[in-house]
Amino acid sequence: MWVWVMVIYGANLRVLQVAAVARRPEVQVVLDAANTKPRIMNRGDIYGVTTGFKATSQCGTQQGVEFQLELIRFLNAGVIGKANSLHAQTTRAAMVVRTNMLMQ
């Protein structure tokens, strides 16, 4: 089995690349370490990732995974419950687009 590694830089992400990531689990996404990874990894709180939004943005957490799950449930207003989840392709596409945006 082959593995395709796609480096994202925070710019120039194409629709075909997002589709490849979404449809093929063997595509591995890595961050451009030279420019963007240090900026992302060295931050404390990241708005909307480890904090809430607007009035709750001053509240941070060290429980990032649990916070993100609850935030997704909240923003979807119950569309995604604890037993349900998004399709893997939708999740992979959303994650690569969001990561690329955060790297900008």
Rank of each mutant, 00 (worst) to 15 (best):
Y9A: 12
Y9K: 15
Y9P: 03
Y9S: 13
G10R: 02
G10N: 05
L13F: 01
V15F: 00
A19T: 09
A19Q: 09
A19I: 08
A20G: 06
A20Q: 10
V21E: 04
V21F: 01
A22C: 09
R24Q: 12
P25S: 09
E26S: 07
E26L: 06
V30S: 09
D32G: 04
A33Y: 09
A34T: 12
N35L: 09
N35T: 15
T36K: 14
T36C: 11
T36Y: 01
N42V: 03
N42K: 10
R43K: 07
R43M: 07
G44R: 11
G44Q: 10
G44I: 04
D45T: 07
D45N: 06
I46R: 06
Y47K: 11
Y47I: 03
G48L: 03
G48H: 04
G48S: 10
T50M: 12
T51W: 02
T51C: 03
G52C: 03
K54R: 04
K54G: 01
A55R: 04
S57H: 10
S57L: 10
Q58T: 09
T61F: 02
Q62C: 04
Q63K: 05
V65G: 05
V65W: 01
F67M: 11
Q68H: 00
L69Q: 00
L69F: 01
E70R: 00
L71C: 05
I72F: 02
R73V: 08
L75Q: 15
N76Q: 10
N76H: 08
A77D: 12
A77V: 15
G78W: 02
G78A: 07
V79G: 11
V79E: 11
V79M: 11
I80R: 15
I80V: 13
